[in-house]
């Protein structure tokens, strides 16, 4: 009997790593770890989700995965302490002469 292996798709979250959406936007979000209070607002609202709360030096701070960050500014607008800043990617910083 020949066994056929089917790729069912669902329940294999590893496949999501095939598409790196981090190169879509022109900006990336960065977290100011000094200011971050670890409230998790950005984690809730990130549509990707590419933000995680990570334990660092005894407190929780948000860490952004730039492999997937599309630069939508959502985390920037919901942050209660303005700990997130948006920066243009290096390749889009053009010098006009």
């Amino acid at each position: 009997m020949v066994k056929v292996k089917l790729y069912i798709g669902a329940s294999s979250p590893a496949m999501t790593s095939e598409m790196k959406t981090g190169d879509w936007g022109t900006e990336w979000a960065f977290v100011d770890e000094e200011k971050c209070i670890g409230c998790g607002q950005c984690v809730t609202f990130c549509p990707e989700p590419c933000i995680e709360l990570v334990e660092k030096e005894g407190r929780k701070v948000a860490v952004i995965d730039h492999d997937y960050c599309k630069g939508c500014w959502m985390c920037y607008t919901v942050c209660p302490v303005d700990a997130i800043r948006m920066e243009t990617k290096e390749i889009y910083k053009l010098e006009v002469c």
Partner: peptide, 10 residues
């Protein structure tokens, strides 16, 4: 997700 194709800000 992550890695879905929704528009940024969807």
């Amino acid at each position: 997700g992550p890695g879905h194709g929704a528009c940024p800000g969807c």
